[in-house]
């Protein structure tokens, strides 16, 4: 039959030879397209950084609980038993998309506690997802004098910083990648649920910097930043160091969307 006269009917057992040949060529082309696009789109993804969530590994921790600016645990560094003691600061959060209970943190503020939880870490930032009900005070308050000097805030002056507001729990490892537009919805839920909001400042020559965001009076700003998460933003405020933590004090209404 003249190929131009061929007529295809799907319910017939076989396609006419000319049409069948063309369809086979098209199918091969589409399969090749699937393979090429699968590889290309996979390779072209943005680099994904190193962050870890030790999911399923529950460990015990002890240290001094601090409630400000966001709940965190001061853990004595190994080999730093002589005074003045040095401490690592581990952010504390609850499972799922919730921050550590602020009331519980206030009650235990400054006390030595033990708790169980799962580590989340990225670069020099560490967080513990605390197992519900596992935290309890221990020991005596003698350790407090050691802790106090290490956590005194030190002002680093007024700074203007450009970065992206991320939820610290996902960015530090629970989700990878846990940043940028595609993660925004999750970051909004996490920060709305009390996870500490952090300004992530990417440096071209050096590691990324993390600034815990608080208002000028040092209060949490979770609810005020929800509309400006995962976007390029410029914030001018006072930077201070509190132990290992960098804190940026600024009125959220002055945050500038870039």
């Amino acid at each position: 039959m003249n190929p131009k006269e061929e007529f295809y009917i799907g319910w017939q057992s076989k396609a006419p030879p000319g049409i069948g040949s063309q369809v086979r060529q098209t199918v091969v082309l589409l399969l090749a397209l699937a393979i090429v696009l699968g590889i290309l789109l996979g390779v072209a993804q943005r680099t994904i950084g190193v962050s870890v969530f030790e999911w399923g590994k529950v460990k015990s921790f002890s240290g001094i609980l601090k409630s400000q600016p966001y709940p965190h645990l001061l853990v004595t560094r190994p080999g730093a038993k002589a005074a003045p003691a040095t401490f690592s600061s581990y952010y504390l959060v609850k499972p799922f998309k919730f921050g550590f209970d602020a009331d519980a943190a206030s009650r235990l503020d400054g006390q030595k506690v033990k708790l169980k939880g799962t580590l989340i870490y990225r670069a020099n930032q560490t967080m513990i997802e605390v197992v519900d009900g596992s935290i309890e005070p221990i020991g005596s308050p003698e350790e407090l004098p050691h802790a106090t000097p290490a956590v005194q805030p030190v002002s680093l002056g007024q700074r203007t910083l450009v970065g992206e507001i991320v939820d610290s729990k996902c960015y530090l490892g629970v989700m990878n990648p846990g940043q940028l537009t595609t993660h925004r919805a999750c970051a909004i839920r996490c920060i709305s649920g009390g996870i500490p909001p952090v300004l992530l400042v990417r440096q071209t020559n050096g590691p990324a910097l993390y600034f815990l965001l608080v208002s000028r009076d040092g209060s949490p700003v979770n609810k005020q930043v929800l509309d400006i998460i995962a976007e390029p933003v410029e914030i001018t405020g006072e930077v201070e160091r509190q132990g290992e933590l960098l804190i940026l004090r600024a009125d959220p209404s002055t945050y500038r969307r870039l």
Binding site: A34, G42, Q45, I48, V174, P177
Partner: peptide, 23 residues
């Protein structure tokens, strides 16, 4: 099924090889 399967498999394997820490 072959086309969809090939795409998913290749995208998944390459992503895991290049970015082993991806969630």
């Amino acid at each position: 099924a072959g086309g969809v399967g090939a795409f998913l498999l290749l995208f998944g394997v390459i992503s895991k090889l290049l970015f082993p820490l991806i969630t």
